[in-house]
């Protein structure tokens, strides 16, 4: 049986150039449909579709930090809907089993020596500059209210404000490409607007039938030398039982 993950990997490797969802573009690369008004919420929803192939999917990601570029961490991420995420640590070996579950804005970590899940705060760091929320919270729709701050011929700049407490970031400023709805850059801000981190969504490649960013390059807002790169190694649409996403079953 051909595994869907294998299919995704094949698509990535071969780099099939046929984009299934490319909008019709004008001569300057901006689709005609863009001329019509589009709401900020709709832009965010379409940008989410770029990063998320389905309601339920699987990711394998590598996180490389500037402190230890030679020692990348690797995680398997299972996402169900907008608010359920399971992160399993694959590398380094010493951390294998230190898995995390996120339901809504609540988070649990599995402690292997205790063999149980313990409640943790969402702001705990995964590794280096990568917070748990950077991987587990792949959708902005639903979590944030958006307004269009500014726009150019090619980009919208959106300001997203959290509509619930407990999120890793209170505000985001996101740059989305017109036409493709590719998120390109983001600034992660505190509620008062102080810059926490910058992120760049890069290395767009064909993944699960669409051009998607396979790298999120994160830079500390205060210490620019501190960086992390989240690389998507594999992506697969998969069905997960909802009962997998409860703290009692985190292990």
């Amino acid at each position: 049986m051909l595994h869907r993950l294998a299919r995704c990997l094949v698509i990535v490797v071969v780099g099939a150039g046929l984009s299934l969802v490319s909008p019709v573009a004008t001569s300057d690369g901006v689709p005609e449909a863009q001329a019509a008004e589009i709401s900020a919420a709709e832009i965010v929803r379409k940008a989410d579709e770029v990063r998320n192939p389905d309601e339920s999917y699987f990711l394998r990601v590598e996180v490389q930090t500037s402190e230890h570029p030679d020692r990348p961490s690797e995680f398997e991420v299972s996402l169900l809907g907008n608010d359920k995420t399971l992160i399993k640590t694959v590398k380094p070996s010493r951390d294998r089993g230190r898995n995390m579950l996120m339901r809504g804005t609540e988070m649990w970590a599995y402690i292997p020596n205790l063999k149980r899940a313990v409640r943790v705060s969402l702001s705990q760091r995964l590794v280096g500059q990568a917070a748990n929320g950077d991987i587990s919270r792949m959708r902005w729709s639903g979590d944030y209210d958006a307004v269009i701050e500014s726009q150019t011929e090619r980009h919208w700049t959106l300001l997203l404000t959290a509509n619930k407490t407990g999120l890793t970031y209170a505000k985001l400023r996101v740059v989305v490409a017109k036409g493709t709805y590719h998120p390109e850059k983001a600034e992660y801000l505190t509620a008062t607007g102080r810059l926490l981190k910058k992120a760049e969504f890069a290395a767009y490649r064909e993944l699960c039938g669409r051009q998607r960013p396979t790298e999120i390059r994160i830079q500390d807002g205060v210490r620019p030398d501190e960086r992390a790169v989240i690389k998507v190694l594999a992506m697969e649409v998969r069905k997960f039982p909802a009962s997998l996403f409860v703290p009692e079953n985190l292990e």
Partner: peptide, 11 residues
């Protein structure tokens, strides 16, 4: 019981 408030967790 448990509850998380930003960086804090009550147990």
């Amino acid at each position: 019981v448990s509850m998380a408030f930003e960086d804090w967790v009550l147990r």
